[in-house]
Write a protein that binds this DNA or RNA. Sequence first.
DNA 1: GACCTGCTGCGGTATG
Length: 820
Amino acid sequence: MKKQQGQELIKQWFKTKNWVWADFQKKAAKAYLAGKSGMVNAPTGSGKTYALWLPILIRHIDSVAHPGAKAGKGLQVLWITPLRALSRDLHRNMELVCLEMNLLWDVGIRTGDTTYKDRQQQRTRMPDALIITPESLHILFSQKNSEQIFRHVHTVVIDEWHELMSTKRGTQTELALARLRSINPDLQTWGISATIGNLDQARQVLLGVGAPLEEAELIKAKSKKKLAVRSIIPSKIENLPWSGYMGIRLVDSVIDIVRKSKTTLIFTNTRSQTEVWYRTIIEKYPEFAGIMALHHGSLDREIRDWVEDALHQARLKLVICTSSLDLGVDFRPVETVIQVGSPKSIARFIQRAGRSGHQPGAQSVIYFCPTNALELIEAVSLRDGVDKNILEDRPPVMHAYDVLAQWLLTLAVGEGFEEEALFQEIKKTYAYQYLERAEWEWLLGYISTGSPSLQVYDEFKKVERIEGRYKVLSRKVAMRHRLSMGTIVSETSLKVKMQQGKYLGSIEESFVSRLKPGDVFFFGGMSVAFVRLHEMTVTVKKSSSNKGQLVRWAGGRMPLSSQLSTFIRKRLAEALENPGQEKELDRLQPLLQLQAQRSIIPNMDTLLIEQCATKEGYHIFVFPFEGRLVHEGMSILLAYRLSRLMPIGFSVAMNDYGFEMLSDRSVDLDGILGEIDLFSEDNLVDDIYHSVNATEMAKRKFREIAAIAGLMFQGYPGKHQKAKHLQASASLLFTVMSKYEDHNLLVKQAYQEVFTYQLEEERMREALGRISQQQIRIIKTSKPSPFAFPIMVDRLREQLTSEKLEDRIQKMLAQYSNAD
DNA sequence: GACCTGCTGCGGTATG
């Protein structure tokens, strides 16, 4: 074969397919074949995978032409994907390509569901290219011959890099990349990413620090597709509740839209919400039975696969889903997408819109269905964000000591490592560029003798130092480590099974513990009755009752993004005077007028605080519009600062727009704010640190960290340890370590994670900075305003409290006896 | 004036 043969072959194949080589694909191919690294930035469905697979293939075909660089030299290309399903899809595709082109190219796959036989085969002979998840890649590094395996790898591609980057799975990927670069300094690294705000940073994280960014290509697919945002607006504002997040009131309008198109995807924010929508539609519109399905993360994989298949073959008219359908499996695009409730971020909204079908050139449409009155503002703000093409950042995870500890152990289980060389290698990753020598020493100690307070226990002595190399000799330690690799720590969940044996999915212990035999709940779109709980499995049978409980899962709580909240503040400020042509704002007028009448509508230069007294007590409502996490932090801060001025405790509640502090005594806020700056940024960290909640929050975070860092063995597969047991040991370890050690990095990390992720410290600082420039308006209201009302309702649901329960009961007793 | 809030994802028991 001659050089250039590859290009020719691919061109011919393209012709037979009647495909056109898109501009960005050409560019990517050129850069790749010139030996460069970089990133391809393209939306789903644009042929982004081919942009790299084809040039890799060309290189392969051409290289076979050179004697000495022949096939069978082992693994040369690694393709990392975040999803097993995605790996499967790609693998199938690539095998097909090779078949059609009559090519000898061995593409393999290695994920958790690869068969044991395949894995055995890979031990002795690796394929030319391997599609793999970050976790499985780490498992390969825990093999004794890992350097041998990766010796000839010249290309690594990371698919969906924007998804991985901002998680600990991304950190894992960074570490593996650094290792591969040490083995082969000429490694070419390519990322494939959807559009995010921080594309440059994404590229830097991918390449590691020290790699000059100019030398890495950024290849963008031109996609200036127009996206129209249409709101589903009720005929009367009374048809939308003031509070609530289910949105079911507008079901008739939604069904009108669904009827008009062949297939529709309804995205909701929670798993329970999909269940509610499914049930409501089936009851009101029974004709949808059989052509409608549900898809969320707690449904059994088999059911989800069925739904995805049916969607692919256009056998379903409607699928109600959570973000489980956000990425991954490429089904044929659906005709219509409806988002129910706030998508919380502009980027996510656009991503979901991208699932909708479109003729070339035509504009695609996404419908927004508000779930409460104020979300009409969000509809307009989303449109602003889409029009201005503002996208949120995905910040990479920094300083995750737990992930690093796990990695050290992985390498020690594998070939072992020499510490100075590895230290230098790790410093090249973006995540650990600021790692200090002392921290490094602590980590080495942690894996070899256990952290200082654990040194008496042998089970924490895992790694030994032999002739300068850190290695794991114990087979038990090695096996336990392989069993607990990865950074995803899930709540222990129970399987749900029909009496006949079919698995439906999973629910949480806390929900099941409230059930008695015969109790009915809704799951997977069915009404089922609880039969028994045995060995982590909940058995149920079909029920004909249409009354039953709604399953609740404890999940993540995404806050409104700061980009979106900026648009909301702007829109709100001018909503009364200048609603423009926006129908949403027009419809909202009565509510806005009521707000203005009872209180005010804050403009951009104003922070609104409302105070009112009800029979519940004295309420303070603050409206920074900064997302619920920042509000959580601010409420802790304010509660702490006020409690230093007077003996007072608060019940706090928050939503994405503001927060409430409820107490049994009135607070003279006017007077206090005249004297001290409650919203000051000074001592921010200290004040939060001193509040009761910080330790509790850190303790909860610590469970995850301890699991990743290998402090707690999660048990053998199938034989789960009780959740309570794990929680107990994590909290015990936390207490011991924080009490007896000054520099425990894992404890430090727990607090860092609380500040960074739970309280969004950086964003809170920005918000406090903004507030310091704003005029604070304190309005005394006679009744809770339309802004305040939803937060009160939320509190009744949750009952968070910063007081001790006993104190609370004492106070309530005192209150009632006074009333007598 | 009145609400059924909380996403997603991986891996694993067998020797070089």
